[in-house]
């Protein structure tokens, strides 16, 4: 997990029963990009974050939050 940014993509994927590949295809990125965002190795751009939030129908701050 990134020191600056937490995310709950994995939780949302589980709720929607989606694999990383499904989510990647849905928002037009690669599976590698999704997996590295999940583990905090890659901090996504605003555009990717908003696409993920829109896909799950949730506010972006419900998925991404700043680490305390």
């Amino acid at each position: 997990m990134s020191a600056d940014l937490n995310n709950r993509i994995r939780v949302f994927r589980a709720e929607h029963r989606m694999s990383q590949g499904d989510l990647a295809d849905a928002i037009g990125v690669s599976r590698k990009t999704i997996s590295t965002i999940e583990v905090g190795r890659f901090v996504p751009s605003t555009v990717i974050a908003l696409k993920i939030a829109r896909h799950f129908g949730a506010p972006v701050e419900e998925i991404f939050s700043l680490a305390d």
Partner: peptide
């Protein structure tokens, strides 16, 4: 380094 992290698939986990 990234390849070591990449194997997550929700269906497999479930």
């Amino acid at each position: 380094v990234d390849d070591d992290l990449e194997e997550d698939d929700f269906d497999d986990e479930a």
